[in-house]
Design a binder for these strands. Sequence first.
RNA 1: GCCCGAGUGGUGAAAUCGGUAGACACAACGGACUUAAAAUCCGUCGCUUACCUGCAUAAGGGGCGUACCGGUUCGAUUCCGGUCUCGGGCACCA
Length: 895
Amino acid sequence: MIPYNHKSIEAAAQSQWSAGDVYRVTERVDKKKFYACSMLPYPSGKLHMGHVRNYTINDVMARYLRMKGYNVLMPMGWDAFGLPAENAAMKNKVAPAKWTYDNIAYMKKQMQAMGLAIDWSREVTACKPDYYKWNQWLFLKMLEKGIAERRTQVVNWDPVDMTVLANEQVIDGKGWRTGAVIEKREIPGYYLNIVRYAPELLEHTLTKLPGWPERVRTMQENWIGKSEGVRFAFPHTIKDASGTLVQEGKMYVFTTRADTIMGVTFCAVAAEHPIATHAAASNKALAAFIEECKKGGVAEADMATMEKKGMNTGLTVNHPLTGESVPVWEGNYVLMSYGDGAVMGVPAHDERDFAFAKKYGLGIRPVVFPEAAFKVCGPSTGWVQSAECKPDNTFFEVAGLREDWFDLSEWNSKYAEKGICYTHEKLGSKLDGSSSDRAIEMVPELIRTQGYFAEKKTTYRLRDWGISRQRYWGTPIPIIHCETCGAVPVPEKDLPVVLPEDCIPDGSGNPLKLHAGFLNVACPKCAKPAQRETDTMDTFIDSSWYFMRYCDPQLNTAMVGKGADYWMPMDQYIGGIEHAILHLLYARFWTKVMRDLGLVKFDEPFTKLLTQGMVLAETFYRKNADGSMEWFNPSDVDVETDAHGKPVRAVLRSDSQPVMMGGVEKMAKSKNNGVDPQDLIDAYGADTARHFTMRAAHPEDTLFWSDAGVAGSYRFMRRLWDYAQKITEQIKTAPSVQNWKDAPDTVQTTRREIYATLQKASFDIERIQYNTVVSAGDILLNALGELRGTDDHTKALIAEGLSILLRVLYPVTPHLTHQLWQQLGYAAQHGDLLDAPWPEVDASAMKQDHITLVLQINGKTRGELVVSATADKAVIEAAAAQAPEVELYSEWRPP
RNA sequence: GCCCGAGUGGUGAAAUCGGUAGACACAACGGACUUAAAAUCCGUCGCUUACCUGCAUAAGGGGCGUACCGGUUCGAUUCCGGUCUCGGGCACCA
C-alpha cells in the first residue's frame, strides 16, 4: 500500500488548481454572490500562525459556500507601506521597496502552499501607484469638501527620529524606538474630520451592524465616546497691572453636570489655552510651568496616573449666574483636545477637581444632595420647593446637610452622584429643589437670561484623524508648497504623485527632503519653483478601502466601479480583534465619505465580522546571572510529565539542563514561543496545519498550540488515506442500493449515524463552528471503519459514507480530499470536488421504527424506554407508567 | 474606576429551544503485534474505595459533579439574582 505522502498530494492538487485557474471569479448575475475577506497582511517577511488561522477560516468558508452554489470572492493583498520597511532598510541598507516586494513574493508562495482558494488576479498592493493614486485622489476630494484640512496641532514629536509618533508609540514619555524624551509640538499637518461623522458612526454601530460581535460594537461606541452636556461661557475682562482693560472675552467650557454649576470655585485651563498663554506672558514661573506641562508624552494611560499639578494664572472669570469672581488655574489634567480646553472646577462633585482643590486649598462647595438628605415636609413648612419632588406637591427641607452628608477630608464616589440641587442660603438659586436632570435642562436658559452664551451640546471623545507622517515609505500627500500661493493641491491630471522607490532611509529624517527629483516642482497655480509636501499618509488609509479595490482591481479610470457595486458590501470580514477600533472605524468612516461623494451606495462596508482568537503557546525561559530573561522556543524543549500527564519539568534539548515554564502566552517574538508555519507545512503538510488549527478551538476562541495535537491531525490524515487505499477497489465495484430497509440492522444503524453526523456538520459549518465540523470527520471515519461486512448493502454504504466524508472535510483539508475524490471515482459522478454539491441529509435514513426515549423521574434520568416511532402521547405515557423504574424512584410524589 | 466577555475531566473542548453532561481529540494507563523500539490496532479513562452488593482498588448499583451561593422549573452547563477568579477594552473625556 502506498503510504500517505502530503508533499506529492498537495503539490499535485495545487498545480491542478493553478493550471485550471479555478479560483478566478467574475461578476455573475446567475448566482448569489458572497464576498468573504481576511484583513490584509503586512508583508513583514513570512506568515505566522495567526495568518494561517485567519486565512484557513476564510478558506473553509469560501470553499463551503462555493459548494452551496454561491459565487464566492476570496481576494488577498498587501498592506505594503509602513515603518518596518524603513527600519529594515536602515538595518540592512536595502531600499524599503525591494525589501517589501521580496517579502510579498515569499509570503505569496507560502499562501499558495497552504492551498488557499484566492483569486490572485485581484491582488492589491498598497505601495503601488495604481493603488495609492486613489488615496491621493480621494484626499483631494476631501480637501474640496472640507473633510480634510491643514491644521497646526499638538503632536508627539520624537526629536531623534524627527517624526510624529502615534500615542501608542510613546512609552513612559519616550520614543518606542529611540528612547528619546518625546516633546509635544505644534506642527502643521493634515486632518480628516472624522468627528463630523461621529453621530452617524455611532448610530450605525447600534442599528446597522447586527452581524458584528457585541464587544466590537461596544468598543467602538466607547471609542467614539458620546457625552451630552452644556457648553457655556464664563465672561472675563483681563486687565494689566495698572488696572487698564486689555481684553474682554469669554472662556468656554463644556460640562455634563451643569446641575453642579453653583458649586464652581475655580476654573482650570489646558497648557495650550489662550488664557494660559496670555497669563504666562507676564509671569515667568507660570510660563515655565506651562512649558513643563507641554512636555512629556500625551500617552493617555500615563496621564491617568500622573499627579495633578496646577498654578494660579492670577486671572479671573465671572460666574455667569452669580457674577462671582472665579480664579483661573492652569491645570495639567485639562486636555486642550477635548471640549474647549477649559473646565469649570466643582470640587464637591468631581473627583479630579476635589483632588486639585485639596492640593491648592481651593473652596469646596456642595450643591447637589441625594434625596435621602432631605426631609419631606408639608407644603407650608419647607422652603426649598421642588418642581417635581412629590406628586402631592410636598416640600423638601434640608436636614443638616453639610455635617451629615459630606466629609470634606476625603473623596467619596457618592459625591459625584446625581440628586437634588440645594444651594447655600446666601447664594440661593433657581435650581434649588430641582433634580439634577431637570437642573441640567434649566441651566442653559438661566445663563442666557443673564445675557451669556450657553447651549446644549453633544461632545465626542473621538478626535480628528491626523494623517501626516514625517516618513518616507507611505503615500505622498498630493500638495505643493509655493511661496506665493501657499499649499496648493496637485491637479487631478497629475496624479499619482509617485513615491521614488530608490531611497534608503538612514534614520536621520525623511529622505524625501533630500530627493531633488521628487522635491522640486513648479507650482500648479503660478508655475514658479515650489516644493512638494514630503509628509506621507498614515498607512491606515491604505487599509481603509483596499477591500473595495479588490472588486475592480484593474480599473484605471476610477477608484471603484461595477465590481464594487456587485460585491460590496462585504458579506463576511475576518481578522484579529486588535483591529476592533482603529482600522474598522477608519474603514467605516472612509466608506461614508465615499458614499457622500457618490462613489458607492451603501453605508457600512462589512455586513458580518468575525474576530478570530489569538494563538497561544507555552513559554520557557531561564534567568541569566544579570537578571535578564532568555526565552527558548517550545520546539527546542522537552517537557516531562507525571503519571497523570501533567507537566512537571522542562529540559532544553541542546544541553539537557532544566528550563522554567513561563505559562501560556500569545505567540510572539519577544517570548520566542512562535511556531513557524513553514516548518509545520514542510513536516506535515498544509492539510494537517489547516486541520489542527480548525479542530483545536472555535474560530473566535484562543487557540492553544499543541505539538501533540498537530501529530494527532497528521495521524487522522494518514488514517483517512490508508482507509481509502484499502477500499479503493471495493468502492469502484460498489453496487447501487435503493432499498435500505432490507439492510442488516448494523448497516441501518451506521447509516443513520452517518446522516445524523452530516446533519450536525451542516448545521455547524453554517454557524462557523468549524471545530465540530472537523470532529464530524472523525466520527464519520470511525463509523465507516467499523463496517466489516462484504455484502452489497455494506459496500454501498461505505461508498456513500465516504463521499459524504470527503465533502464534509473538503473545506478544511482540500488537498487530500481532492486527491481521494478523483482516485475513488466520485469526480465522474458528482464533478470536481470544487463545485461538488454539499451532501444532503437523507431523511429516510434518519427514520426509525422504534425510538429510544429517556425516562426521567423528578428530573433525574432513570432508564430508557423503547417505543414505536408512531406512538402517540397516551401510548408513551402508558408504557412509562409500567416501567419498573417508575415504581422504584417516584417515591410518594405523583407522576 | 467604568464597560464587555469567560469559568465544564489531567488537557483542548462538545452539548441547535431548558431535557441522557463530558461527543471528538490530546495526554496517561493496560493489552495485542514485535527480538526490541517506533508505527499501528484493541481496551480503560469526572469524583465517590468508610454509600450498598462483592474476596475486591474487579463489576454492578446509588450518590455527587459544569467556579461559588441562592432562585425559577417536573427538570438548569443553559434562564434570573448575588459573590469570586481570570481575560479583554477604555481610562484625568470635564
